[in-house]
Design a protein around this nucleic acid. Structure first.
Lengths: 257, 257
DNA sequence: AACTGTGCTTCATTGACTGAAACAATGACG
DNA sequence: CGTCATTGTTTCAGTCAATGAAGCACAGTT
């Protein structure tokens, strides 16, 4: 546990279990987090005093409080991407019947920072905060393709987890795929994470030209037609370009031949 | 400090200073929070490992991470009000040139949980997470009016803070005002917090008939006309009713006379 | 009314948190 | 190019605070 300070770590874990299961009491939290009741009581007491959790005095249960919203609102400010992207995600969502996701990379994971759900598919899919591997799915592979070279090596140090028959688990094959993605700045995947799902994704670049996020449309294969594929492929690239532009990205002009 | 566990408390304080001042380093945080460098280093290390802060290795500065977004997204789910209100706030914002705010009560404070800013006024006003007293402003007084009776007594146990000439600091006068608010379910204030600002607010009720939040429009007196006053008063009540309806509130039918 | 469970409180112990100080790494400046 | 100042990082030891065990008060249930 090197440098981590355990009390803080436990408090954060508590917050997260409360995020997953709101409306539970001290004993249940204690059970879920594997701590004693008294410890949980004190942790939650300090969290409550700061507004991170709220106690319902009648039922003596706890839920997340309003302070996380404050943090998120401020995080939101600094995440230029999210801010810039949201209006475009809204538009994109109205134009297709898949889920629209905005992903960024954090270390060796992809993190979903925005979702627009369309009424049709179940919410089996992404939720804000959901983390996933980088070697599967339409968006994550883009993030991996444009990540620092060392990171890929670090990832390849351990074997790639297989999710379906279509999952790329061969390092060489993955490298080729990433090369291809770098060339086109977009990617699509069909059933490499969930066998029944597709995903069309495109890279978002900031003013410095760095790939900072991806937009994607994801849905069930069963609902996908050739016609849709073509338009989604186009839509997703289009929105990625618009968001990039909003971030100040100016595509380099190639020397005319 | 009774039950609070200090390590956790300090960690949360650190998160919040980072929310206010993103992009600072260890020493500056240490300075701002009044802790030693080594402590800050360890706190931030554990926060980083859990994704609450992100370190920029090149500049060695820290910003909020993606995990708060996850918490907020889950808090969002349980806050039916926020979810129900957002579309209506959007509409309201397009119809007026003041700031639109959604407030809830947390203990003896009002907390802003959503804002729609209009380009015109400065953002002196509310931000998400902003806390304020309950006895001033259009919205807070509504929250106070419908809070449990004990709470008002608790509030009146200490003298009411005066902000401007228009602030109600006399307990008896406040009680009368609250009575009036309970009768109409709406409220407006002119310069009782900020001498130059107005606020029109209305109560939002949930399916059980409880007042759970308020919507308000706030702006500068200088920009207010009689005509606007009338329409804002109407707009704000209207949206409060719509949000209440979305939450499942059915107004009780009075026995016809 | 006895009982099972809950949240809450107290208390003693030890182990974790903390501050001070040394170290390394980075950048500023002449 | 070398010196200096400042930053982040690490080490270490003392003590204070975090912790678990046990006991209390209260509510709901049968």
């Amino acid at each position: 546990m090197s440098y981590t300070i355990t009390a803080v770590d436990r408090a954060l874990a508590l917050l997260e279990t409360l995020a997953e299961k709101p409306g539970i009491g001290v004993t249940e939290i204690a059970h879920l987090t594997g701590n004693t009741k008294s410890l949980v009581f004190r942790l939650i007491y300090t969290l409550e005093r700061r507004g991170y959790v709220i106690k319902d005095p009648s039922t003596r249960t706890y839920t997340l409080g309003y302070r996380p919203l404050y943090l998120a609102a401020n995080a939101h400010d600094q995440f230029a991407v999210l801010r810039a992207a949201e209006p475009f995600l809204d538009v994109l969502a109205t134009r297709c019947d898949g889920n629209v996701n905005l992903l960024v990379r954090d270390g060796l994971n992809s993190v979903c920072i925005a979702v627009r759900e369309t009424p049709a598919p179940a919410d089996l899919y992404a939720k804000v905060g959901r983390r996933g591997p980088l070697h599967v799915g339409g968006g994550p592979k883009i993030l991996l393709a444009f990540a620092p070279a060392e990171l890929l090596e670090e990832l390849l140090a351990s074997p790639l987890e297989r999710f379906t028959d279509a999952t790329i688990v061969d390092p060489a094959a993955l490298r080729r795929k990433l090369e291809e993605i770098r060339a086109v700045g977009a990617n699509e995947s069909h059933g490499d994470l969930d066998p029944e799902a597709y995903s069309f994704a495109a890279a978002i670049r900031d003013a410095a030209g760095e790939v900072v996020a991806t937009v994607s449309i994801a849905g069930l294969n069963a609902t996908l037609t050739d016609e849709k594929s073509n338009s989604y492929r186009r839509f997703v690239r289009d929105t990625a370009q618009r968001i990039s532009a909003a971030l100040g990205y100016r595509p380099k002009l190639r020397a005319a031949v």
